[in-house]
């Protein structure tokens, strides 16, 4: 499946390989040598990154975050999906249908 689709709650997301990942002052930072790009996911982005180390449905990811943080479900959904779409555009995550 291509990475050109929009993120929805039913999709499965997981980390893409090939990045050097480190923690810096509580924030998750990554370096992709092939692309010559440096990424800072911040503190909460780092939590999301670790949660998708194994393939996880976006719905499950949102539910997990809502159980850990003081945030409304709708706000969490919108912001997490927006963040995941940026990760997808940079090729940092893989996106699959539940059935694939």
């Amino acid at each position: 499946m291509s990475n050109k689709q929009a993120i929805s709650l039913k999709l499965i997301v997981s980390q893409s390989a090939g990045n050097l990942v480190s923690d810096m002052d509580g924030e998750k930072v990554m370096l992709n040598i092939d692309k010559g790009k440096y990424y800072n996911l911040g503190q909460l982005g780092g939590v999301i990154w670790e949660l998708v180390e194994q393939p996880m449905a976006v719905q499950e990811l949102v539910s997990t975050l809502c159980s850990l943080y003081q945030v409304e479900q709708s706000e969490c959904e919108n912001q997490v999906i927006e963040f995941l779409e940026k990760l997808m555009q940079e090729g940092l995550i893989q996106v699959k249908n539940f059935s694939s």
């Binding site: 370096l31 800072n40 996911l41 999301i48 850990l68 943080y69 945030v71 706000e75 997490v80 963040f83």
Partner: peptide, 18 residues
């Protein structure tokens, strides 16, 4: 007790690098 939420953001920088 739940932690405080902050909007997740992705910062992207082009770097020059052997």
């Amino acid at each position: 007790m739940k932690k405080e939420w902050s909007k997740p953001e992705l910062e992207v920088l082009d770097v020059k690098m052997m």
